[in-house]
């Protein structure tokens, strides 16, 4: 059975960017802190525009923030 998984590096990138808080990232990305929390913990898959906004906030390409894996189990 194939399972899809969206992983992200938001937590690591936040700490590498001056220990940015979730609220600061949320304000820059234009969402609520709860949404950043949900994305960071893998419970919510953001829309493409939001994913790009988060990547732009860190100044890195999208694939450095989000990784999509398709596992066959």
């Amino acid at each position: 059975m194939a399972t899809n998984e969206l992983r992200n590096q938001i937590r690591r990138l936040r700490f590498e960017n001056g220990e940015m808080t979730q609220q600061q990232l949320a304000d820059k990305a234009g969402v609520t802190r709860q949404t950043i929390l949900a994305i960071e913990s893998g419970k919510y898959a953001p829309s493409l525009p939001l994913a790009f906004r988060i990547a732009n906030t860190f100044g890195v390409p999208l694939e450095d923030v989000f990784q999509y894996t398709n596992k066959n189990t």
């Binding site: 949320a26 234009g30 969402v31 609520t32 709860q34 949404t35 949900a38 919510y44 953001p46 829309s47």
Partner: peptide
């Protein structure tokens, strides 16, 4: 303050 975003 942003209160309602795409997840909401």
């Amino acid at each position: 303050q942003i209160e309602f975003d795409e997840r909401d």
